[in-house]
Computed example of a mutant assay.
Amino acid sequence: MWLWFHRLGSGPTFYPFAGRLAWLLAIPGLLLLLHGLYGALWAAPVDYQQGQGYRMIFVHVPAAWLSLFIYTSMAVAAVVALIWRMKVAEVYIIDAAIPGAGFTAAALITGMLWGKPMWGTYWVWDARLTSELILLFLYLGVLALDQAIEDKRQAARACALLALVGAVNVPIVHYSVEWWNTLHQGPTVSKFDSPSMDMRMLVPLLELTLASTLLFGTIVLVRMRATLLWRERHSRWVGEIVEAEQ
């Protein structure tokens, strides 16, 4: 197991493995996405208080979940990169930060669009909103740091340190509605003891959240394969791949 873990961290082993795994994630991800969209847009009933506007949650919740999930996975990759110096872990930190920043921005924007009719304002310096905004800045900081340092191995270590330090913000975002008196509503999906959502709403929401996670995995694996090919373009194993595909 330990030997397999180290082999997977090398480009020649990870490249074909990531190619196969990307397909295994993409197919169920697309199927869940299509079924979830049908449930969210047509099968789910209209909310008796919020009307059609509540359907924003079918974008907002998956985006918010992925903003936390991706950064947490970057922090785990940062530990691997700093301790074992695995190139694949270094590549993951940067390639995951780009969609991570996109999902975080989507969570903020959809939250603002939902907040205007519900709260009467697009933005308040609420604990949840503010900590989510800080998370976006952390993502952008990782990307900016990668661009600022020319040596990619040094840049990767610097980005790993920032990702690891910034991970303290993840539990703050998650538990902010419980630790402080905030305008943002409390958890609804996780209230299994007394569900707050109709199952016709909850099922497509969960499907879209899982679909988004699987499709993120597909995207980041494809990006990592491309990044590894570019960084290792002078190596023997990349030359063998190019010759095999010609």
Rank of each mutant, 00 (worst) to 15 (best):
V91W: 00
V220F: 05
D126G: 03
Q49L: 14
G51L: 04
E207H: 09
Y175W: 12
T130H: 00
T218R: 03
D146Y: 05
A107R: 05
M199D: 15
W123H: 04
G11M: 01
M112V: 09
T227F: 01
W180S: 03
E207L: 07
L133A: 15
W42N: 09
L24P: 09
P45M: 08
I109K: 05
R233Y: 02
S235E: 14
Y48W: 15
W125M: 05
A78N: 10
A40Q: 02
M201Q: 06
L66D: 01
I134E: 00
L228E: 08
R85K: 13
M56P: 00
I241R: 07
W179F: 12
D198I: 00
L138H: 12
A107P: 05
F17N: 06
W119I: 07
S194F: 11
T104Q: 08
Y122N: 05
M224F: 02
L108C: 05
V189F: 07
C159V: 10
P204L: 04
H234N: 13
R157F: 03
Y175R: 04
L108G: 02
A18E: 10
P28E: 10
A43Q: 04
C159F: 01
S73V: 11
G111L: 03
E150F: 11
H234L: 06
S73M: 08
R55M: 07
A75I: 05
L30Q: 07
A158R: 13
F17I: 13
T209Q: 08
